[in-house]
Design a binder for these strands. Structure first.
Lengths: 237, 237
DNA sequence: CAAATGCTACGGTCGGCGCCGAACCATGCC
DNA sequence: GGCATGGTTCGGCGCCGACCGTAGCATTTG
């Protein structure tokens, strides 16, 4: 039994403001150094170091040393999942979007960003919507599937569908795109194995590019064409 | 944007040992009084009252006054979801099941229990397995669906399938059973709308009965027959 | 109207932990 | 080697919050 004590430990770890900022900074799935995280959280290096030590020993974060740097990343997608579900609850409490918070940086984040290992923001929901309207995917509250035609489509654009299929079961219908509620759009987008594959492909084919060291991404001209013509997605932003 | 501050607030609320116990006690979806929760958490009534007030105003819990009692329940399935995902992360930290923890009470919990609004424990996974082997459902890591034959099956046994369908989208294939990883079995079982409907039906038809005031349930003789003959489920416990 | 029960409000105590300054290792560069 | 940079360890400070005792309010029961 997962004791309530360890449950509380994990939740308390995520419940400190400084640590929460660090975890959010790691939500793009990349690895950051301790000092970057310290700066992000607005604390000194030694404080951040302590936090990171606790989070690694609790299995929230893992380290990977490389030269004199120590890169930290989220330990697993389960952690990212947990954070999403906490955000989900937290978003119900927010005062209905004060909207005055912008800045170009924020705007870029809203337009398109990564969410651990998949795409979110307006781009993320636009792609999910496009997949749905073409009958490539079927999304509902609790889960989603990629249809047979959707699978064919993914194969055409270059996704290694076989690698995805192993996780699905024996029948003709293929499972597995987890809807992930977006904090800015409040709409589901494609997560799970398919979402991750699509995101990886988009980077690989240079449809999107990461903005320096943030979670935000920009759609390249080539990507815009692909998303418009192949996906039939409406990208307003 | 769901600010990291509110994120931290929610996580910190779940991160206190006493509150964690209370939340766990509410995971069966029922409503409990403040004093019951106080006893469960091992704190005095006034302390528990304070905790409950904070959790209520944060939207984790909601109250429902009835006479001189005030019943508390989890505010939404999103909260239950969040707790499940935290348990998920927490279970990775546990020292591989010390197994010596038993007692008849614990045994009953492992055999069959409710998990917010659906069934878990050996019963829960047995039903999920049975649904899968009969081709009624297709479960994978990120999501699951009920097949057409599965829908017919649910209709036959008395589930109001139309009520479920509204949440699904327009195509022939129906979505929506979220796999929920079990803390005792470490295997997925049926959650989401279908899981909830199945659980409700089982109580209604008297296939299962709740053990006094715990999350544990017992399978009635009639239920055992139904689960064996209709579902073809193997109930070892 | 009392008396009892369920719950909440207030004040005070105390332990835990988040924070920093300073000192201490490790790696890389000149 | 000397020096700079990235990171961790240690000690001490200060604050937040979890807790309880007492007291107060609402509702039901006698």
């Amino acid at each position: 039994m997962t004791s309530t004590a360890t449950f509380a430990t994990i939740a308390a770890l995520a419940g400190d403001p400084a640590r929460a900022v660090m975890l959010h900074a790691l939500m793009d799935g990349r690895a950051l150094t301790a000092s970057e995280l310290a700066r992000a959280a607005g604390v000194t290096a030694q404080t951040a170091s302590g936090h990171l030590a606790r989070m690694t020993s609790a299995g929230l974060v893992c380290v990977e040393k490389q030269g004199r740097h120590r890169y930290h990343r989220l330990a697993s997608s389960a952690v990212a999942n947990m954070m999403e579900s906490i955000m989900q609850v937290a978003s119900a409490l927010e005062p209905a979007q004060p909207r005055l918070t912008v800045g170009p940086r924020d705007a870029a984040l809203r337009a398109a960003r990564t969410c651990y290992d998949h795409l979110a923001g307006r781009l993320g929901v636009a792609l999910a919507d496009a997949m749905a309207t073409h009958g490539y995917a079927d999304l509902a509250g609790d889960g989603g599937i990629v249809t047979d035609s959707g699978f064919a489509f993914l194969g055409r654009i270059g996704v290694d569908v076989e690698a995805l299929t192993v996780r699905s079961s024996r029948r003709g219908v293929r499972i597995m795109c987890r809807p992930c509620l977006d904090w800015s759009e409040r709409r589901p987008h494609l997560a799970g194995a398919v979402g991750a594959a699509l995101c990886a492909l988009s980077f690989e084919k240079n449809w999107i590019r990461r903005i320096e060291d943030t979670r935000a991404v920009v759609v390249t001209p080539r990507g815009a064409r692909v998303f418009r013509e192949t996906f039939g997605a409406q990208l307003v932003g």
